[in-house]
């Protein structure tokens, strides 16, 4: 009787375990709120970037208005919306906030990174130091890791440059030879770098000690239209903002596609030309919904 029961239990475990493993990775996004305006009611215009800061801070790159907006989201309630004025002529397109609360802003017009103090005042232009060549560095995107090291997507020389928080060169990895256009990157807690090829619809990855990238995914052509931005959640799941497809595509850690989330449209919870995505570590995601001129907040459900 006992062996029979053991066999039954073992079979049950075998059946249940993989199912629970898959279920743990299956992600959904549920709309919580949408952010349309600053604290004075001034509407956003084509925001392309959003960063989740330490604590409850959410910084928005209000690209069309050439400014940043600082919000706070606590227990699903939105407050703040103070404007952070940027130097004239800056078109903020991607943001990151480091552990000190400093805001790093990619200026799409002058293709450089600005470092702002936590209060939003201008600090310095971030420029990597100690590079082997003198060619210009043109970042299309950038990310920070958990130690605030900076990862630059340098499309001019076709490489990812890694620097310490002060900008001192640490290492670089060339883009894969067969890549077409690397629009964005992501870095996980182990230091694995992921890069997104928008045209080939492929994500490549390189481990902390790797010297080259290798494909993480197959050609994602059937799942995405033209992805431009990529972010990782705390579980290491990748989210691609499918700009032309107006949706989010979820990629599991092993490179398999979980599926598409959200649809194209004007209603809340729908997207039109989404761009940067950020996660605040509380299973909450913020998406720059560019052509709807708003930022939307979602609960990440697993």
């Amino acid at each position: 009787m006992i062996p029979k029961m053991m066999k039954f239990l073992a079979a049950l475990l075998l059946m249940v375990f993989p199912a629970s493993a898959i279920a743990a990775d299956a992600v959904k996004m549920k709309h919580v709120l949408s952010i349309y305006a600053d604290s004075k009611g001034g509407g956003m215009k084509n925001p392309e970037g959003v960063a989740c800061g330490p604590g409850s801070a959410v910084i928005v790159a209000d690209t069309g208005n050439g400014r940043l907006l600082k919000f706070s989201v606590q227990d699903k309630n939105l407050s703040g919306g103070e404007e952070i004025t940027l130097p004239e002529g800056v078109a903020p397109i991607r943001l990151q906030v480091n552990a000190k609360g400093e805001i790093l802003v990619l200026d799409g017009k002058q293709r450089r990174i600005l470092r702002l103090n936590p209060d939003g005042t201008f600090n310095a232009i971030f420029s990597p130091e100690g590079l082997a060549t003198t060619t210009p560095v043109i970042p299309r995107s950038f990310k920070l890791d958990s130690a605030d090291n900076v990862y630059l997507d340098d499309i001019f020389s076709g490489r990812i440059i890694v620097t310490d928080p002060a900008g001192k060169f640490l290492r670089q990895i060339e883009f894969p030879k067969d890549s077409r256009f690397i629009s964005d990157l992501a870095v996980d807690q182990r230091g694995t770098i992921f890069i997104l090829d928008s045209i080939k619809s492929v994500v490549y990855s390189a481990g902390p000690s790797d010297t080259s990238f290798s494909p993480l995914t197959k050609d994602l052509d059937k799942s995405v239209t033209f992805p431009v931005a990529m972010s990782l959640d705390a579980q290491g799941v990748l989210y691609l903002a499918d700009e032309h497809g107006s949706g989010i595509v979820v990629i599991q850690r092993d490179g398999t596609v979980q599926g598409r989330l959200l649809t194209s449209g004007w209603k809340e919870g729908q997207l039109r030309y989404p761009d940067q995505i950020c996660f605040n570590g509380k299973e909450e995601a913020f998406v720059a919904d560019r052509e709807n001129s708003r930022v939307q907040m979602f609960d990440v459900l697993r």
């Binding site: 299309r140 499309i155 001019f156 020389s157 076709g158």
Partner: peptide, 13 residues
């Protein structure tokens, strides 16, 4: 290069 929005391949490798 002076406009707000750039066709990024122009500044690629």
């Amino acid at each position: 290069l002076g406009k707000n929005k750039l066709h990024w391949p122009l500044v690629s490798k």
